[in-house]
């Protein structure tokens, strides 16, 4: 395991927190997130797990998602977009 990849600086803080939530949630420290990833790309990501994940994201980022956002958030990229938009609006 190299320390360098951890601190490459390429990821911003939202990305890091998002990846940390995914890793904790799916209990897999090897998860690396890419925008195109959806339900089929991570083992255990089904519709119930999705609601739990949304719940975990709300807790981590201290916010609540509205219906429009909930509808969008079906892929990693979309989740990242919503989070970034919310963060810059706050």
């Amino acid at each position: 395991m190299s320390a360098a990849s951890e601190h490459s600086g390429a990821m911003n803080s939202t990305d890091q927190r998002l990846r940390a939530v995914f890793r904790e949630f799916f209990n897999d420290d090897s998860i690396e997130l890419q925008d195109g990833m959806t339900f089929s790309d991570i083992r255990g990501w089904d519709s119930l797990a999705h609601m739990n994940l949304i719940n975990a994201l709300e807790a981590e980022f201290g916010l609540k998602f509205g219906v429009r956002e909930l509808m969008k958030m079906k892929s990693v990229g979309a989740i990242r977009q919503v989070l970034t938009a919310k963060a810059s609006a706050a």
Partner: peptide, 15 residues
């Protein structure tokens, strides 16, 4: 309760 979560995911009560 969370009206959004009810509409989007039929969650009751809120998380």
């Amino acid at each position: 309760s969370d009206p959004g979560m009810w509409i989007a995911a039929k969650q009751y009560p809120a998380a």
